[in-house]
Design a protein around this nucleic acid. Structure first.
Lengths: 305, 305
DNA sequence: TAAAAATACTCCATAGGTATTTTAT
DNA sequence: ATAAAATACCTATGGAGTATTTTTA
């Protein structure tokens, strides 16, 4: 014996129609079913809601109060259904997307407009941070997905592969390598290599490619953006590597640098959409990944699914 | 499959404890019971409320919204229970009492204070009107009870007998009847009789006692209060009959009238507490009737129950 | 007599229990 | 290996149906 949402619907119907039989019909149940349920509710509450005989139904004072509250409760319940109904569309609601600093400023401009066109009901929120903190945010539910260049090793997370992004060399104009047709990794003067500060995954990826220890390049001042790195190259402070999409702003020799894609099959990184395995709107993730892949610049290689 | 109040309690518990097992314990059910109910609710709503695995439970965005609404709904449900709980006391809430004009001004002063002392939580509302309209108000639920001098013939209504009220003759000082020791009905000069307007039951009761036709006394101007009637007697315009309690204001010969109880076993009227048979707070009616009976002036005869 | 609510009973859907499996750390 | 949720399966409660009775205008 426990008050039921259906009971509230029953007493609301009776209070409106002042007739058990008609109320039962409206509720789609038999008159005895409705009568017994109302009687049970009255017993549970210990009060009489309706004064009734075979001719008429009258609502008691307390019944009036209770039914007003029942109306309130039912309207909140309706609200629950409506809220759920609206949210049932996986392409609606909010979506919190993270991206690392060596991707966000280059990829998102492509992405935002397309995304809005494809999912107009989706409210996108962005967060730019380094891989570690994005992973953290994913795990504690502050983010729904993140665009990373690192395949997560956390078993709670899963990924969709997006694209492969080649590495380009950035050298000061007039550098001896400018005359070489195909620049390979081993051609690079490692002692001149400028890198982002620790924590940025691209730093590790570059070091990895060059088979250098992590301690190298720490002499440099703390650099947290690829733009700054290229500017440093232009100022003759060394050379650097950048991911392909960082060059879509078309750096030219006019600005004191020249750029060349590394002629090396290993000189690329793989970009992933990372998310919690349990994230419920999986379809949204798939569609969003597709959207990203079909709107990439030609400098990167899309991965088909 | 229909959303249940219990389901809302379950999801509230899980959202608080972030743990299905502990939530189940708090709810007093087994973990599988709670798990399956929540899963069914999620299916019914078509959304995921919790992201869960064997290590952790996280609330989804939409889950957060739904649980907030569930909290609202549950608080209204609590309100329903609390309201019912409070109203379970039949001596609380409001009570709308009617009384006829030949009773209300004389009885209620005795009654109000005693009633408040006996039922401090009861909010009394009074309505003074003629019998017919009070009966009407009783039947359509505008009144809970009425003090009448007419035993209701309506089968929906029931009565508790309260007291018998003798009739007194009111005559102008110096009237020939003043010298008679025991005034009997047949002594009265019917042609001098002043009465209330039609609709007042006391008019009919007086006519009935004197075995007069209803047309008599209509020559008089419209009088709707016993006070006025007595003043008219004092002014020498005739004689009248009044119910005993109307004289508790102690009219004296100084004011030009003398009063005498009629020496006639039929010269009284019976007063009833009238109410709908189905009125749920029967105990309150009984106690209120007792209260009235034990606080009457000696001019009337209480009826024991 | 007629109309409506209450009661009696039977049935079945489903909430809940126990035991077990799956999953992830 | 452990902790927790999910699943399987069985039981029992209680909501709903049909038939009938009671009530009252």
């Amino acid at each position: 014996m426990f008050m039921n949402i259906r009971d509230l619907i029953y007493i609301r119907a009776v209070s409106k129609l002042k007739h058990f039989g008609k109320a039962a019909e409206v509720c789609g149940v038999s008159q005895p079913a409705l009568s017994t349920q109302i009687k049970k509710l009255e017993q549970e509450l210990g009060i009489t809601l309706f004064e009734r005989d075979s001719r008429s139904v009258q609502i008691t004072d307390i019944g009036q109060d209770i039914i007003q509250l029942a109306d309130e409760a039912l309207s909140v319940i309706d609200n629950i259904r409506a809220t759920a109904e609206e949210a049932r569309d996986p392409f609606s609601g909010q979506f919190r997307l993270g991206a690392i600093p060596t991707i966000a400023p280059y990829l998102l401009p492509y992405f935002i407009k397309k995304n809005y066109d494809a999912f107009p009901k989706l409210k996108l929120h962005f967060q730019e941070d380094i891989t570690e903190r994005l992973n953290q945010a994913l795990l504690n539910g502050e983010l729904d997905a993140a665009i990373l260049a690192t395949p997560s090793e956390n078993p709670k997370l899963d990924v969709i592969r997006l694209y492969d992004e080649p590495f380009w060399a950035v050298l000061p104009t007039g550098h001896s390598l400018q005359t070489i047709d195909k620049i390979r990794t081993e051609h690079l003067p490692f002692e001149e290599l400028l890198l982002l500060t620790e924590g940025h995954c691209f730093r590790d990826q570059a070091l990895d490619l060059c088979q250098l220890s992590a301690t190298l390049g720490t002499r440099s001042i703390r650099v947290t953006s690829l733009e700054t790195l290229i500017n440093m190259v232009a100022a003759g402070q060394g050379i650097t590597l950048v991911p392909a999409m960082a060059l879509s702003g078309s750096w030219t020799t006019d600005q004191g640098v020249f750029t060349k894609k590394l002629d090396d099959p290993n000189a690329y990184r793989r970009i992933y959409l990372t998310f919690r395995k349990r994230f419920p709107r999986r379809q949204l993730l798939e569609n969003m990944a597709d959207l990203i892949c079909t709107n990439l610049p030609s400098s990167v290689q899309r991965i088909a699914h």
